[in-house]
């Protein structure tokens, strides 16, 4: 089992690697799309802006390779935070940009007039789901995960919604298309439940 973490210069790979290793995975951090051939699991992490992230992925030739691995070959794929948002069709951060389009939808900014609702959404919040299927085995619905973001993923299709979180109304915190999953929260920073989610991913 080799989990490959895509390194496209968007930060915080260390804690993702360390968490996956704690779960028993062999981890490769890669800047080379051809390494995907050897991966049993692929993680797209990321902190930062959509436009910058997509630009960096494209410069290194990742988008086509990711589509082939995740869509055609069905290799389990996990997008985290910005990595989740990049799964969308478009993002609006820093101007409208095309995403990887693995899960149809759009990434938009939280909008609120309520001074009590502070943006960015930073901290621990609940993740609610109705079906205890992948990636939520052994995790209670409503459990707290760690979030830090100002934009959120709005899927085109209801079947892409795996979980929601109550903030600024309610937003989609986990998207899923078969074995492609994106989490707006950081499982690698979400203590026990986050560890369980990574275990569920690696168990595929």
């Amino acid at each position: 089992m080799t989990a490959l973490i895509i390194d496209y210069g968007m930060g915080n790979l260390g804690s993702v690697r360390r968490s996956l290793e704690e779960c028993g995975a062999d981890v490769v951090i890669s800047r080379n799309p051809s390494d995907l051939d050897q991966a049993s699991h692929v993680v797209l992490p990321g902190v930062g802006a959509f436009q910058d992230g997509m630009k960096r992925l494209t410069e290194s030739g990742w988008p086509e390779a990711i589509r082939k691995t995740a869509l055609d070959e069905g290799v389990p794929f996990l997008g985290i935070c910005l990595g989740m948002q990049l799964l969308a069709t478009t993002g609006s951060e820093g101007g409208t940009t095309s995403g990887l389009n693995l899960i149809p939808g759009h990434v938009i900014r939280f909008e609120t007039d309520d001074p009590e609702i502070r943006i960015p959404h930073v901290g621990w919040n609940e993740v609610h789901f109705s079906e205890q299927t992948y990636p939520f085995e052994e995790i209670p619905s409503g459990g707290d995960f760690y979030f830090v973001h100002s934009f959120h993923f709005q899927p085109d299709n209801a079947e892409s919604i795996a979980a929601t979180t109550p903030y600024c109304g309610e937003f989609v915190s986990v998207v899923r298309n078969n074995l492609i999953v994106g989490t707006q929260f950081h499982p690698e920073k979400s203590s026990r439940y986050g560890r369980q989610l990574l275990n569920n991913f690696l168990a595929l």
Binding site: G11, N12, G14, S15, R18, V47, Y146, G194
Partner: peptide, 30 residues
């Protein structure tokens, strides 16, 4: 950072964006 499984926020000595990039790379979340 490798030992920290909750969000890790780090400060001190940052004067350029390169420092921010290096810190995020080293495992800082903020």
């Amino acid at each position: 950072a490798a030992e920290c499984f909750v969000p890790f926020t780090i400060g001190g000595g940052i004067t350029e964006t390169a420092h921010i990039r290096n810190l995020l790379k080293a495992g800082a979340d903020k």
